[in-house]
Design a protein around this nucleic acid. Structure first.
Lengths: 331, 331
DNA sequence: TTGAAAGCGCTAACAC
DNA sequence: GTGTTAGCGCTTTCAA
């Protein structure tokens, strides 16, 4: 930068102003400075800028990982969400610092902010520890969370209406005549618990009883899903519908059923949650509750930017709708 | 930091040394300083450190996006790779800055380095512009690339042996009796071109001719794949095998076939490339060439670290093996 | 419209 | 083993 100043015959402060498009710079001087800068292939040093200005123009995207069911993260759903966030950030000229943390230590998500590396944090899921997130928010960390809106929450969330989604999916299966619907999803996670609430509501509203043995509160590991579905078949639970709290789980369940000679949708109706890309292209294609990923990324970034601008955190409930495909198409 | 110094009754430089575990610090002093630091919930400011030390302890992971076939990135394969890289970086105490760029402007990948935000770049794929990457490498940007090793390459790559992989998959289909094998993959990308080379080699080595009309050099958009597979069916090309250059493409092709009443593997044998998680759990499960994602992440990070340590860039060819599953199981 | 100068938080060379 | 001090590259207040 001082090189440019010397070559342009001006002071470094003038160069800084020119580069930042300050209004108090002579057009001619600025043009000259910009020319020299591009000729020199100059780019401003981020550390210097950040140190002086006190902000990094970087946002931390923190992905909690469950060491047990590792592959939560290999879910295409997360990548789509990550892509949505990346695009929204790029649009605003922000960089994205991605880190993975243990689901049981959500508080370390604040690190990237405390060290000044990022100006705020987008957390993918609140998992089992909303309390820790409340503490972070109380400490003043700009924070927004992907997931369900819960009572006593001091931080903003963005997510679909999980209860409604669960009710839509289950109601659809019931309306098609299914009477014994299995539920797959780890209910220790708030989002899945709410989807299960919706599953219960759908039954209640139709005056139907639920067989609790059909609810399988399992982590989404492929082997576990396979085993549970196989168990439900051999135990002759006689289920004629299945609502899985994620698309990947639903697809794994479907392939297990098909392999066992059970037809989908003829023998068992299946619905998922997420609407990941492949849901439309597998066979049979999957009926599912759509989570609008691009919109989600946009909302998360917008919400965080509002906080950085000093506004209060506002939670967002995204449009929650059922997409009907072959896995529930009765001929 | 000066606060800590004052409270501990020492100079800031002593604090700095204590925090960095310098060997020339009194054990007692250090203990006291560390105690105060944790009590104050202190974390070193990254910008200050980076400005002074000239390095950021951050690596840029750059994901080129094709604006046309956008969903390349939503491929679970990339997320698995990203996860592998993230783990390897975390292990070494590095942060990961993720950015998406246009496939036609690979040169902007250097930005994150030029601005000092990162110490090096991991680029996911070389796409159509190996020349631009050579320029980056020549400029001295620490760079390592996921993808195929090509002649005249001045940068290091990590990837499977694409030619071998293509040959293994195609050879397997041929050995099972398939004689008219379709190939799906955009051959403008070096990796896919090499996989096609392998496809040709497998035929040549068995003295078999290839029908060029069965090679479909198409981008991996679900609709395009569907259309091409449907076209091959209606045109009565009589293909009895299909090698898709990615698992997602193979799965889309399979569901298209099944929907058209064509059985897999009875009527058409199908093989893919990548071995993404779902490959084992769809129905039928997918025969594919495995790309070891965790190992890949590790190798990419190791290679980059070597460069940062002043060593020369070394390319790595990962173990390339065929995983046989139901989609090629003849009963 | 521009220049001079201070200082963001940290590290490291040098002095003691 | 610890203190002193300069300076990394940048922005911004104040003065001109």
């Amino acid at each position: 930068m001082s090189d440019i100043a010397r070559m342009a015959g001006v002071n470094v402060s003038t160069v800084s102003r020119a580069l930042n498009g300050s209004s108090l710079t002579n057009e001619e001087t600025r043009a000259r400075i910009l020319e020299i800068a591009t000729a020199l292939n100059y780019t401003v040093n981020a550390a210097g800028k950040s140190l002086r200005s006190g902000q990094s123009r970087t946002i931390g995207v923190v992905i909690p990982i469950d060491p047990i069911s590792q592959d939560h993260i290999s879910d295409p759903f997360f990548l789509a969400l990550l892509g949505g966030i990346a695009d929204a950030l790029t649009e605003r000229g922000y960089d994205m610092l991605v880190s993975r943390i243990d689901v049981e230590e959500l508080e370390v998500a604040a690190n990237v902010c405390d060290t000044g590396r990022t100006d705020g944090v987008i957390l993918i899921g609140q998992w089992r520890h909303p309390d820790k997130l409340n503490q972070m928010a109380a400490r003043g960390i700009p924070l927004i969370v992907w997931g369900a809106k819960l009572p006593h929450q001091k931080y903003a969330t963005v997510g679909t209406d999980n209860t409604l989604g669960g009710e839509l999916a289950t109601g659809h299966l019931l309306d098609l005549g299914a009477r014994r619907i299995a539920f797959l999803g780890d209910m220790e996670l708030p989002e899945f618990r709410l989807r299960h609430d919706g599953y219960m509501n759908a039954h209640a509203k139709r005056g139907l009883l639920v067989d609790p043995s059909l609810t399988r509160p399992i982590p989404f590991v492929a082997e576990t899903i396979q085993k549970n579905v196989e168990a439900m078949l051999t135990q002759k639970t006689g289920f004629d519908g299945l609502f899985a709290a994620s698309d990947v789980a639903a697809m794994t369940a479907i392939s297990t059923l098909l392999r066992a000679g059970v037809r989908v949708p003829e023998d068992v109706l299946v619905a998922g949650y997420d609407d990941i890309g492949p849901a439309a292209y597998t066979h049979p294609s999957l009926t599912t509750v759509r989570q609008p990923m691009r919109e989600a990324g946009q909302c998360l970034v917008d919400g965080l930017m509002e906080q950085l601008g000093g506004e209060a955190a506002k939670s967002v409930l995204l449009t929650t709708e059922l997409v009907i495909r072959e896995s529930t198409r009765r001929i």
